[in-house]
Design a protein around this nucleic acid. Structure first.
Length: 249
DNA sequence: TTCCATGTTCCGCA
DNA sequence: TTGCGGAACATGGA
């Protein structure tokens, strides 16, 4: 379930279950998850290494080792992690498994293969090369910065918040939640938002990225839990969108 | 059998 | 140049 809050949890999960453990055997169960990395290089580069640090930017996770290549993980739509000791607990859709010296295992699983587990040289270069925007949880990300980003945009606010080049980490569900909480219609033009609305979106987006419960019912015709209006289902920014037809304008 | 899916990328069009 | 719709990717689950 990978948007920013989930990826943040995966980062902590790796910190808890993998950091400081020596990899005795990296196993590639399905090469299609490797992106541009070749299986032989993946195994050769990680065998004998230890994971030393986890870093997240948006929906991307970077796991450093005690040497050069950095493991880059992206969870696509169905990526997940599983740590276990009993080898029989290996997940059905595991694509990569790390066998650690202490007998524990960490699996990267992904049913639909939209995720990636690959080796890269430098996360900073990766972020630049992929034009990733600011991370909502970055403490240095200010409302002023956000206003500057917004000022050059005219398209629908939902598309803007979904774009990883503007703000990195929000996906379909959390964008719907942000707009629901701020009372802004997903198709509103970014250029027509008031200063107050932009500030509210900024605040809410950052709060939502810390993973509160989601309030927008993802079901057409449900009553709005906030105002009693009716929840509508539509397509915006190419994605199924749920919003309250009454209080989101 | 058909439809749907929390992501990203690429193409074509306005 | 900007923005967006649609398709593609690959697959399981309702």
């Amino acid at each position: 379930m990978p948007e920013l809050p989930e990826v943040e949890e995966y980062g902590r999960y790796i910190a808890r279950h993998a950091l400081g453990r020596r990899i005795v055997r990296p196993r590639v169960l399905d090469e299609r998850i490797l992106g541009a990395t070749r299986a032989a290089a993946f195994v050769r580069s990680l065998r004998g290494r230890s994971f030393t640090r986890v870093r997240r930017h948006g929906k991307h996770l970077f796991v450093y080792t005690d040497r050069k290549p950095v493991l880059h993980l992206h969870f696509g739509m169905t990526g997940d992690l599983a740590a276990y000791r009993d080898a029989s607990k290996q997940p059905r859709f595991a694509k990569i498994v790390f066998d650690f010296e202490d007998g524990s295992h960490l699996a990267f699983e992904d049913v639909r293969l939209f995720g990636v587990a690959e080796l890269i040289d430098d996360p900073d270069h990766f972020i630049i090369d992929h034009s990733l925007g600011r991370d909502p949880l970055d403490p240095a990300f200010t409302l002023k910065d956000f206003r500057a980003l917004m000022s050059r945009r005219t398209g629908a606010i939902k598309a803007l918040l979904m774009s990883q080049e503007v703000v990195a980490g929000l996906g379909n569900l959390y964008v719907d939640e942000t707009l629901f909480q701020t009372g802004v219609h997903p198709r509103r033009s970014s250029a027509k938002l008031s200063g107050e609305e932009i500030a509210a979106i900024f605040r809410t987006m950052r709060a939502v990225a810390r993973k509160p419960r989601l309030h927008v019912p993802r079901e057409e015709g449900s009553p709005c839990p906030r105002c009693g209006g009716v929840i509508r289902r539509a397509v915006a920014a190419g994605r199924t969108t749920y919003y309250c037809a009454n209080h989101q304008r």
